[in-house]
Structures are given as C-alpha cells and as structure tokens.
Design a protein around this nucleic acid. Structure first.
Lengths: 374, 374
DNA sequence: TCATGTTTGTTAGTAAAGCTTACGAACTTA
DNA sequence: TAAGTTCGTAAGCTTTACTAACAAACATGA
C-alpha cells in the first residue's frame, strides 16, 4: 500500500521528535489495551525491548506509568512485570461552555470518568464577565483536584482557532477572545480550547465507539456539527467547519430565520423552534412535525454524506425529541437521496454519552494534546 | 499555538524516518523556490548548514539535484554555490482514464510540463481488455522517455482504494481491479493510482493556485468531486469521497436518473443531459437552462461548503457551458443559501489547467509519493 | 593597499536515539 | 536435574543532527 505522504512537510524533524512519537506510542498501547509487560509493548509497537524499557523508565519517572507486579498467568520463562497507566496520577479539567444559561465543568480521570462536577450560572453575562465565570469555574474545580492537573480542555460555542482564540461566539459576546492564553496564564497548566461540536465528536470517537469518519450533529439552541475525517478533526479554512445551522434546506421556502434568510436548517431543527411547532400538538400531528424536521436534516446532510463518504452520523441533543420519528425520517431521507451503495454502511444514531459529551470531549483534547493518547 | 496531535500514532518512527522527512524538506524548498544555496536552504528550513550539506550531497548523488555554479550577485562573503532540482533528471508518466472513449497519457517533467502525449481508443473495451490498453499506453510512453521514469501516476474513474485497487468503475467493468500492482509488476517502477477527481484537485492545488481547503467538481459524462482539506486529499470511509453525482438535489422532483432516483445532480448537470436540454434552445431559453443547472449545483454544494468551511470551489469541464450563466447562478445560489460571513472568502472559478488537469494531477501524485514534493 | 568583517561550505567532535548482541534471572517442562 | 523459554537489562554500534571551529573568498573602510 502506497499512501500519499503529507503534501507539505512543514518543519524539520529531529530525533527527539521521533522519540516523543514513540513515547506516545507506548503510552497509547497502555492506555488502550490495559496492563501489559515491556515485552508485550515491544511486540505490539515493533520497537525493541531495549527501547521500550528506556521509554517506560522515562514514563515511570514522570509518574505516568506504574508497575503492577508480576503476571499471574503461568507459562514458561521469566514472569513478566505488568505495567499500566497510572490512571489516577493526573486529573483533567473539562469545561463545557455550550449551554445557554450555564457553564458546566468537571474533573475527569485519564479514562474520561467524571469524579467531580461544578457549574456556574451565566445570568446573561457576556464578554469579560463571562470569561471571569469560566476562570472561577476552573478555579473551583482545580481546588477540588486530588492529583496534579494534566491540563484544561474547553468546549466553547462559536468559531475557535487552533490557538484557542474564540474568534466569534455571538451569545457570549466574544470576538477574538484569547481564552486559551487567559486560562494558561492564570493557572500555569496546558489549556486546549475547541468548538463544542468538535469536542463532542472527539468524545464520541474515543468513548462512544464512533469510527474514524464520522459527523456529530449537535441540536440544541442552535444546530452545529463536528467532523472527524480519517481520525482527524476538521477545522476548515477559517475554523468554521461544522457551521451548518444557517444553510438553507430545500427549495420550497420555510420560516424566516434570525439571520434573515428563509428555510435555514435551524428554523426546522433547533430545539426552541421545534418546541414552538410542537406546542399543543398530539399524536399524528406531533409525529408529522418531527418527521418533517427529520426530513429536512436528511436533505441537508445528503450532499455532505455523499461528498465525504461518511460511515456514521451521530445526533446529540434531547433524546425525547430526536430519537424517534425525527431520526427515522432522517435515515429514510438520507437513503432516498444518496447512492444505494451507501445504505449498507451508513449508520445514524444518538450519542451514547448523554449530556456529558462535551466535557468528555474536552478531556480527549487534553489527553490527545498532552499525552498523544485517545 | 497548541494544535492537536494526530489521534493515532500508527507506527514507530526511527531516526531514519526523520531523515527522510528532512530530505523531502530540502527537496521541497528547491522545488518551490528555485535555485538556492545550501546556506539559503539552511535558513529556510531551520536545519543547520552542516545537515543541509549532507542531505544535498545525498540528493546530488541520487541525481536529483545539480550545482548551477556561483551566484552572480555581488555581496560580502564567499560566493554561494547555487543548487537546483535537476528538472530533467526524471520523467513522470501520467495516465488519464476518465474520458469516455479514450485513454490519454503523457510524459511530464518534474514541473508538471508535458513533453509527449499518447492516447489509445477505448473502442468499448472493458475488464482485462481495458487493462491491456492501459498497459499498452504506459509502454508506449515509457518507450519515448529520455530520462529514467520516476513513477507512473494514474487518474481512474470510479472508487479507488489507497493500495491502487479500483474497487468499482462501472464504465470500465472493473470491480476490485488491482491496477497499481499490475502496472508496478509490469514496469518495475512506483505506481500511484487515484480517483480522477482526486488527482484533479491535487493538480489544481500544485499548479493552479488552489489553496489547502478546496473542492474541485468535474462535470462531464458524470459529475464527481475531489476534496482537499487542510492540504490533504480526502478519501472517505470507503474511498468513495466526492461521489456526489447521485445525490438528489432540491425538494421538487426532477428528471429520472439512470440510477433509478429522481432529481440526482447528474440529471441536472452532466454534459449529455445539459446538451439534451439545450437542444435547439437559443438566447434567453438557453440561459435559463444553464442557470437552472447552476442553481442546482449551488443547492447541492451549499451544505458541503458550510459544513467544511471551504474557501474555494473549482469547476472542471467544458468552458463554453460552465463558464457563464451556469457558474454565475451557482455563486448566487451559494451566497443566498450559506452564512453571510462566507461570502467574502468563498471563490468559485473554472480550473486554469484545462483538459490536462488529470494528467498533471497524476504527476503530482508521483511527485508527492516519491519525492515528498508538490 | 591592507586589515577587518562577512558569508559559505566543510571538518571534527558531541549528544541522543534506537539498533544488535549478549547475558543473568526466573520460570516451565521433560 | 537438565534443557528450553521468556523477561528485562547492559554494552557497544550506527545514524542523525547538533555545536564549534576553520579556510576560502568576497566586500569595505581606514
């Protein structure tokens, strides 16, 4: 197999960079496969036992890896010393800024399990005031930490660049807000900030079993999406990938949107709009409203699914509204509007991670950025 | 700036791999910037002069780089010895299998300039017979080569996997045809096979000035697309990325397609269908047909442009039909159906590379795969 | 004119990374 | 008890890119 190399080798690579890569490889093996011996790791990574020993020694002295003792299993040869990630050695602070009236946060261990929670009401704060609430939330969580903080991951609404600057988040009044550097300066730990839907799709990949080409649609006050292509998050040319809420759907009009256009996806699908249209409706009428919303989502997604050859589309939002006639209509519409060969392999489902999906995605960002693990 | 690392470090990295990367970096600098001295390259790559000297010595002994003599410009210090890629040291064989009734091929130099052409009529051949014609075409071109062949690049219709197996190309009757290994075994040189539209978007990126997030739409007997995201071609979960010809457009019916659905993009936009509908039409009626086709393209592209945050969409096909009312209608439709903030930076244009775009894209694949250059 | 400074490309030596080879330790099996 | 197996480590080697230093070849200013 001859794959294309990256088109633009952007900077030099020193031996030490290769070492970092191999170190992550060892860490990744332990993270995913659980307790292994040095010899096991050598076999799985194709590195030699000698090299693995050296890398493991480094990881042990960094406090990331611990020896568990000898393997119980009885077989010929010297018993292996089992190793594992010290999953309680560090905690991760995850922050979810995507909800409309509250910032939520949590302490997570290296497996993404939540050990403490906190939240702060937004009370209509915007701008620096909203930033102060983010800082306070992080401070409160760090105060509860029982282990060193590996890093802070933040899922923010709006458009976020690769340096963690929130270029635009209308609801919070942020325009070019350097959230990453503010938090990094304040707390002195690594900080990673990304769009909430991007964080969510990472969580779904790491913890929800989504494969490497997936799209996650977040349906709430607005409608957004996070894309994972070939295992890599997509950011887009101006970091606005996934902003599909204001794409017009269909060729037959629709309601007027806050953005001025008519028939935007949000007018069909956002939760406030859905609830408005469901007001007082029962039975078949209710089903019809949900089906129409699902059809509209399918119409909007069909070209994207076809162009990207996605194998998995995941919905995140209120289950009572989404998981039923709406999702069924979306699947049906997608099937009737894309090529037959897609039907077998395209799956559409709800997220399995529930409302913590952004928090856990924020943790994945830290795991990925700091340890090269996910 | 803290970017996310690749999520899955897939294999170990040895120092020798880093060396290969740096070697490509030097090559890339010479390829893009033209004649430079060793010291210039060191400054641009951040490698030391010593390291660059060693890499350059290797490249000279491989016949890829030549010394041009001393720099003319008068300035203090010892005069620099200028280097350049020996752009005539190798030739590339490019093959375009995307046309309906003929396979075309060319010899290209390292700059992508065409020095010889050949073609072979398809005469309705399919299956192994069609493969034999590909082999004959390659053989004829290799026979004309005046320098060693760096590799063979092939742009094929249909779905092509990363190993150069054509999984499905209905017109050619290929299902799982291992074109890469057939050609590699036959000619003993590196062979790279990809979908024609993927090849085309690579050409547009390297030679046509397209930026790193672009989509190229090929409009001919069918309608397809190649996607470049963050400078990397997108293949999709089943190597079928870009297959948009049979996505249904709009919510108001349309003509019945060969695939059985109604209103597929191809029924609006493929050249045979367009010509049918233009039959006998003049003036405003002709314009109306073209505008409607353009609108349909815009409707199909809007969700993709929004979801991927594309900055550039390029059309490839017959200029007389595409470059006029059709393209104007596509732009207008895209603008009216996506967010206002896209309008400033989204450009839609015809390719500047004409009918050789796939041949040149095939050359880019070889340059990228063999030299890490593009 | 001539000393000084600048730039280039190379030589010599060093540090880091992962490799191969070899070995002792600890266990199972015949 | 001897032989075989597996684990982890030690010693030495090769490769890589680095720093330091230098000669060559030029420009510039006193």
């Amino acid at each position: 197999m001859t794959a294309l190399r990256p088109l633009r080798p952007s900077s030099k690579v020193l031996p030490v960079d290769a070492r970092g890569h191999n170190r992550s490889l060892v860490l990744q093996t332990l993270y995913r496969e659980g307790s292994r011996s040095r010899a096991d790791i050598a076999r799985e990574t194709a590195l030699t036992r000698v090299t693995v020993s050296a890398l493991v020694a480094e990881l042990i002295s960094d406090g990331l890896v611990v020896e568990l003792g000898q393997r119980e299993e009885t077989r010929p040869g010297k018993p292996a010393t089992l190793l594992d990630l010290d999953r309680s050695a560090f905690v991760i602070v995850g922050l979810d800024l995507s909800e409309h009236s509250v910032f939520t946060g949590a302490l997570l261990d290296l497996d993404g399990a939540i050990s403490a929670r906190a939240e702060v009401a937004l009370d209509g704060s915007t701008g620096d005031e909203a930033v102060a609430k983010v800082v306070a939330l992080a401070e409160q969580l760090i105060g509860q930490a029982t282990a060193p903080v590996l890093g802070i991951g933040v899922g923010s609404p709006g458009v976020v660049d690769l340096g963690g600057v929130v270029l635009s988040a209308p609801n919070l009044g942020w325009n070019g807000m350097p959230l990453q550097s503010i938090l990094a300066d304040r707390f002195g730990v690594p900080v990673l900030v990304a769009n909430d839907a991007n964080a969510a799709v990472l969580a779904e990949h790491s913890f929800g079993g989504a494969d490497s080409d997936a799209m996650l649609i977040t349906i709430g006050h607005g409608v957004g999406a996070g894309l994972l292509l070939g295992g890599t998050p997509l950011f887009g040319s101006r970091f606005a990938a996934g902003e599909i809420g204001h794409v017009v759907v269909g060729t037959d009009g629709g309601a007027v949107c806050a953005c001025g256009k008519r028939g935007c996806l949000e007018t069909w699908l956002s939760i406030p709009n859905l609830i408005d249209r469901l007001e007082g409706e029962q039975g078949a009428a209710r089903t019809a409203v949900l089906q129409e919303a699902g059809q509209r989502l399918g119409i909007a997604l069909a070209p994207v699914v076809g162009a990207l050859d996605l194998s998995e589309v995941i919905l995140s939002g209120p289950t009572d509204l989404l998981d039923g006639p709406l999702m069924a209509a979306t699947v049906e519409t997608l099937r009737s509007r894309t090529m037959a060969e897609f039907h077998g392999s395209l799956t559409l489902r709800m997220t399995t991670l529930g409302p913590d999906i952004v928090l856990r995605g924020a943790a994945v960002m830290v795991l990925s950025g700091q340890l090269g693990v996910s």
